[in-house]
Computed example of a mutant assay.
Amino acid sequence: MRLNLACELVSSNFHVVFNVANIIGSPLATASHHLRTLKKLNLVKYRKEGKLVFYSLVDEHVRQLIQLASTHSQELMTVGK
């Protein structure tokens, strides 16, 4: 779930929590929990605009790591078939 969420952040610079929940198909509370966990791990950052909270990846290094992990995960699924 968190890899899917991080991959979604790779494809776009900023996401609002409710958009992330819709994209990954989870309740708002679940998406928010996963984003907080990623923030505690210093993988994502956030900024507030009024009541909206926008999340993004911390930097380009994290973006590259997530892309690599996603590619590796897809390769493992292909080999396992």
Rank of each mutant, 00 (worst) to 15 (best):
M1V: 03
R2G: 08
L5S: 09
L5W: 09
A6C: 11
A6I: 06
C7K: 13
L9Y: 04
V10C: 07
S11F: 07
S12L: 04
S12C: 07
N13S: 06
N13C: 03
N13A: 01
V16S: 01
V16N: 01
N19A: 14
V20I: 15
A21T: 04
A21H: 10
I24H: 13
I24C: 15
G25I: 14
G25F: 15
S26L: 15
A31N: 13
A31T: 13
S32R: 15
H33E: 13
H34V: 09
H34S: 11
H34R: 13
L35E: 05
L35W: 10
L35F: 09
R36W: 07
K39G: 08
K39Y: 04
K40T: 05
K40I: 02
L41I: 02
N42H: 06
Y46N: 06
R47K: 15
L52P: 00
Y55E: 02
Y55N: 02
Y55D: 01
Y55W: 11
Y55P: 00
L57W: 05
L57A: 07
L57Q: 08
V58G: 02
D59M: 00
D59F: 05
E60S: 10
E60C: 10
E60H: 14
H61M: 09
V62M: 09
R63S: 03
L65D: 10
L68M: 09
A69S: 11
S70G: 13
H72V: 13
S73Q: 10
Q74A: 12
E75D: 10
E75S: 05
E75F: 06
L76G: 09
M77R: 11
T78S: 13
T78W: 06
